[in-house]
Write a protein that binds this DNA or RNA. Structure first.
Lengths: 346, 346
DNA sequence: TATATTTGCGTGTGCGAACACGAAACAAAA
DNA sequence: TTTTGTTTCGTGTTCGCACACGCAAATATA
């Protein structure tokens, strides 16, 4: 492995000069710089990153701004753990990760938490931009301070985020359509449950519905679908009543499609009010959802590897900060099919 | 981040002594060692791996022994690429990877290639142990030289491999059964194709068949299955004749299960001899197989993330060599469902 | 020509850990 | 008391790189 000193020797200069050339610092004559660059190219020399980070000995801080999870909403646990796991890999390079969490149903909490985040003076920020309008404010501040940011899970357009990491929601919906069709064959009567929890973040959910419908349209398969808008998921009793009424009104329904992470809520309500076996398809492998798979209450889940999303976001940001390596604009997570037989291996 | 010197200062000794304690070198009195250890534990101190590898300045070499891939058999391309990708991540720690490949249908080639491998004096070896008897010879040599080895993809029992990375073949078969059932509902008549290419490596394939059958037995679903033993996959014309005959003899067949990576071969033969739409389910996302998915010739593929297997094998071995971190005995790859709608995101 | 300023570049130190070398400290033998 | 051997540690150097510091030569200004 060739070193800076080897380059220096061959160029007839000192290591310091080579270093200046490498870092494009001035104080080097054009002629010398060219000579050094030629030799660098000749050997395809690259600085030893471990020695470099040792010498730099500088601390970079990455802050994350993700929704907090609780017993009801566990989805955001996985991305958080992904970021924490990634930290173990980047702390060798002097990168630390600090997590900030906000209430995903409260835009004010989003703003407030960002306030404490920015006070911690991070060098890069990973955001789940649940609220669009507020994200505009936030990113304006970040850009003024020249702090790079990337979006995770929610793909907002029109921002200067260095990257987006998440799923193609439309394709996920398409796949859900295929699986539903497979379960019900040519006799599809599906209840689509739109849990529109907040106005800004419903893009992914409506894309999932869009994709679902498109599957049947493209394949020219007839399907009858009922749409239910359900906002309050906490009142289980009212949920049951509502479900009961829908199933009574449309007894042909043999499948339920929940394009959010909350299918387990419906699975439990359903098994409480009816013994009829329906095909249930939902998203995200949360603990509760996985339990439903194992208990045969849910047929399929479509997952987006949220742990990996968190993990990758940190690695990406770290690479960006350390070597200014610009990531791809959009990094799509795999669209993973989970079912009883394979869920234990994920 | 706490350093060796911090520990030394607090213990009232020099950094050298702390270093001796850390590496369990002798020359330290019991009393001092205890004092130092207490402080190490108190701060949960761990040596800075990057500084360590700088100081050590030693090159570790990991050698891989994998089957070579060609146009017909592309499966082993992915693990190879995984190892090469992993190399980029471990070379920071002075680890290099050298790949050796053998003819998977020729045991002598396996032995011969191992000869050149061992001549390169590796510090650790990653093996796809396709041939059992020959693997016994090989590992005997490795053990004599005290070179650790791990198995990838093929799970041989009774060896001192530090780990196995691969799929649980039985569970994969089980999932294949479910998917087949889903495609054909309660009218399953399946042709199972046993491509028994060599005697040693058929364990995974028979497990996949075993799991497949078990699905129907456990669920008490009736299925009629025909088994075909096909050895020569190169003579396409004979293959077509054989398939034609089977389908003619058993016209009820509506699904084909290929528990190896070669389903594309059958898919193309099939579309040449019949226009009937059968459900085809196979394993592994090779380029040809994926093409079949996209062309709707194959319904599902079950993948084991072979790229990740290669990747992980290097990371694991590297960690083992650098920090003597013993890995888990068996590391199971995910059992991934690939279908037309999600295959592009993998 | 003398002095000030800029430009170009070499030197030295430190990052955290590993280890060779050798210096104390102490014990046992002469 | 001196010599020799052993145990226990501290010191100094090294790995490859980054950067502050400062010196000399080149150029500008008086």
């Amino acid at each position: 492995m060739i070193t800076i000193n080897d380059i220096a020797k061959e160029a007839g200069v000192s290591a310091g000069t080579v270093d200046r050339v490498l870092h494009k610092r001035d104080g080097v004559s054009k002629k010398t710089a060219e000579k050094v660059n030629a030799i660098i190219k000749k050997y395809n020399f690259k600085t030893n990153k471990i020695a470099s980070s040792l010498a730099l000995n500088k601390k970079l801080k990455i802050a994350t701004l993700l929704p907090q999870y609780d017993e009801e909403n566990t989805f955001w646990k996985a991305p958080l753990m992904g970021t924490q796991n990634a930290q173990e890999n980047v702390e060798k390079f002097g990168v630390t990760v600090e997590n900030f969490s906000f209430d995903q149903f409260d835009a004010a909490s989003y703003i407030n938490t960002f306030g404490t985040l920015i006070a911690s003076e991070p060098d890069g920020v990973v955001i789940a931009p649940i609220f669009k309008k507020e994200t505009t404010q936030i990113t304006k501040i970040l850009e003024k301070k020249n702090i790079p940011y990337l979006f995770i899970n929610v793909d907002l357009e029109g921002f200067n985020n260095i990257s987006f990491i998440g799923q193609n929601a439309f394709k996920g919906g398409l796949l859900a359509g295929k699986l539903m069709h497979l379960c019900l064959k040519d006799n599809c009567s599906v209840l689509i449950i739109h849990t529109r929890l907040n106005a800004d973040n419903h893009y992914a959910i409506s894309e999932r519905i869009h994709g679902f419908n498109d599957y049947f349209i493209n394949k020219n398969i007839s399907i009858s679908s009922t749409i239910a808008n359900i906002i309050d998921l906490r009142n289980t009793e009212r949920l049951k009543q509502k479900l009961k009424k829908i199933l009574k009104d449309t007894p042909s329904i043999n499948g339920i499609y929940v394009p959010s992470s909350r299918i387990s809520t419906f699975a439990y309500c359903l098994s409480a009010i009816s013994s009829k076996k329906l095909a249930l398809i939902g998203f995200d492998g949360t603990d509760q959802n996985i339990k439903c798979l194992e208990e045969d209450k849910v047929s399929f889940l479509i997952s987006q590897k949220p742990f990996d999303q968190g993990y990758k976001s940190i690695i990406l940001m770290s690479d960006y900060l350390i070597e200014k390596k610009a990531p791809e604009q959009k990094i799509f997570s795999p669209i993973e099919i989970l079912t009883k037989e394979n869920v234990n291996f994920n």
